[in-house]
Amino acid sequence: MANQSFLPVIPVATPEFKSGFIAIIGRPNVGKSTLMNHLVGQKIAITSPVAQTTRNRLRGILTTPQAQIIFVDTPGIHKPHHELGKVLVQNAVSAINNADVVLFVVDASSDCGGGDRYIAEILQKSQTPVVLGLNKTDLQGETREKLNESYQEICQENWQMINFSAVTGEGLESLQQELINKLDYGPYYYPPDLVTDQPERFIIGELIREQILLFTKEEIPHSVAVTVEKMEEGEKLTKIYAAINVERNSQKSIMIGHKGSMLKQIGSASRQQMQKLLSGKVYLELFVKVEPKWRQSRLRLAEFGYQVVDD
């Protein structure tokens, strides 16, 4: 029998303790992942200037003396152009109805747009409480009042509107308290020291994909999927073998680069991030595979971990 003392301990909550699931919803590239990383105090979601970076619904866990908040970081809601896009949007929309509270994040450094109004219409049909989060207020400057007014138009009477910056931390304390206020009393769902429910392999694959997005930029924006094929953990070194899947031979050439230069850059930057995550030395081996039209195939999407989530 396993030694029970090594199992994580989930405390018994007091009657005043609050808990629940908060879906972070918004258009692509409004700062949802940056916000969740800041709130949980650790990098668990990848960030990139490229839109539609988040693909899976990733859970981040924040435990305070008052509450345990489980943030669900969702893919940006957008008009899908392929099967992958349809799956991502379906998952984001389904998260709305399964959450206790929705945090609708917008880029408040620019005026409210059609994409924001589209999401607002979806949320109006839901019974889930909503907090409208105006992110990037550090970039508003003297136009803050005018920009805020444009979002006031989509803000419903029962929504709370809060300004904040996921980068500087301005307003996050107020945002966090408002989210706690909207939660019901409840139990601990996870041990207090846990910051995500995703396995290390998932986070490692995402760290590699982040570096691919940063280094290749628009050349291979969303045609890539990363799979961690093997992971060997030793006392002093963790060996990781991962496949980078692209759709065309031309993309494979870009990914490898002249004499392997691009792949070396991606590998080196990814390894540095992994060593922070794993708190130790990492040996990383990357190889590139061509999987034609994988984004159009439900079978390939499932193999790469992109499935419609109903729960």
Rank of each mutant, 00 (worst) to 15 (best):
N158P: 08
E142W: 05
S150G: 09
N97W: 04
F164N: 12
V105S: 04
T128G: 00
G113W: 14
Y118E: 10
I154S: 03
N91P: 03
L134K: 02
N148F: 03
T137R: 02
Q156C: 05
S126C: 09
R144W: 07
A108Q: 09
V106M: 10
N148H: 13
K125F: 01
T137I: 03
K146E: 12
V101P: 00
N91G: 05
G141F: 04
E142Q: 14
L147A: 05
L123Q: 03
N148D: 06
D100Q: 07
D116A: 04
V130I: 03
F104L: 06
Q140M: 06
V106P: 00
V131W: 02
E142Y: 08
S94G: 08
M161N: 06
R117D: 07
I162D: 12
Q152F: 15
N97R: 15
C112M: 14
A108I: 03
G113P: 01
E142N: 11
R144C: 12
G141T: 09
S109H: 05
L139E: 02
G133M: 09
E142P: 02
D111A: 13
R117K: 15
Y118Q: 14
I122P: 01
I154N: 04
C155A: 15
A92D: 06
Q152I: 01
K136I: 02
V131S: 09
G113E: 12
Q124E: 09
I154E: 10
Q90H: 13
V101L: 11
A95K: 09
D100F: 00
A99I: 06
G113M: 11
V130E: 00
D111V: 12
F104K: 02
E157N: 15
F164Y: 15
E157C: 14
N163M: 12
S94L: 11
D138V: 00
W159G: 00
